[in-house]
Simulated scan of single mutants.
Amino acid sequence: MTSGTTPGLTRFNTSADSEAVAALHEVCSSSAWGSRILAQRPYTTAEALFLASDAAMAELTAEDLAEAMAGHPPIGRPKAGDPTSSREQSGMAGASTELKAEMLELNLAYQDTFGHVFLICATGLTGEQMRDALRKRIGNSPEEEREIVRTELGKINRIRLTRLVESPETPETSEEESSA
């Protein structure tokens, strides 16, 4: 990950609040998280931004986490037309029909159990690894799962923030991806 000042970090630091809020919302749907990150601008390094993100994630309430999760489509069903979602869930792209059907069934059971989508930092994972994680986590208590989700969101946020600060282009001209 980037640790120094980059053109993308400079752009983020100097952009209008409305532009920065929009960029942060693409990283994480929690308005509380975004407000905390925005309030600490400017960041001297990307690492300072990552640390602020981690700290903000640790402070999110259950309601804030629910808001953040609402921005993520279920694994195996990336948001149509959203390159971020497709890229982050690419491990499911070549999955067999059987695996996709199993993921749908497991996702629905998870949602029935916890009241929200199964959330995992899917970047770099195969469909089988995501399925295995879902199988394992469905037996967690709601409290355990909430903390796992918090950790997974933190990983996703760091990946997305890295893309934000390393991007040589403005957000309007860059091809962005979405959800995990």
Rank of each mutant, 00 (worst) to 15 (best):
K100Y: 07
T14N: 08
N107D: 12
A109M: 09
L99T: 13
I120D: 13
K100E: 03
A48I: 05
E166P: 09
G115N: 03
E172T: 02
S30E: 12
E63F: 00
T6R: 08
A133H: 09
L24Y: 06
H116F: 07
A58R: 06
T14S: 09
S18L: 02
A122P: 08
A23F: 08
Q111D: 15
D112M: 04
T126V: 05
R135C: 06
P171G: 08
E105K: 12
I37N: 04
E26K: 11
M92A: 06
L51W: 03
E177T: 05
G34Q: 02
E166H: 02
R77W: 10
R131E: 07
D82L: 04
E176L: 15
L106W: 12
E98G: 12
I75R: 01
R160V: 03
L125D: 11
T6L: 10
S179W: 01
L106Y: 05
D112R: 15
T97K: 13
A23C: 07
K155S: 15
P42W: 03
M69H: 07
C28R: 10
M1L: 05
F12P: 09
F12M: 05
T61A: 15
K79T: 09
S15V: 00
E19V: 05
A16K: 09
H116W: 07
A48T: 02
S179R: 03
E63H: 04
E128W: 03
V21W: 06
T44L: 09
A66N: 10
G71L: 04
E145C: 04
S178R: 03
S167K: 11
M103C: 10
R11T: 05
V149H: 13
A133V: 01
T170M: 10
T123Q: 11
G34H: 05
A180Y: 05
A32R: 08
D82W: 09
E152C: 09
A46L: 06
Q129T: 12
W33T: 03
M69L: 14
L99D: 07
Q40F: 05
G76V: 01
E98N: 10
G124Y: 03
Q111F: 12
R160M: 02
L9R: 12
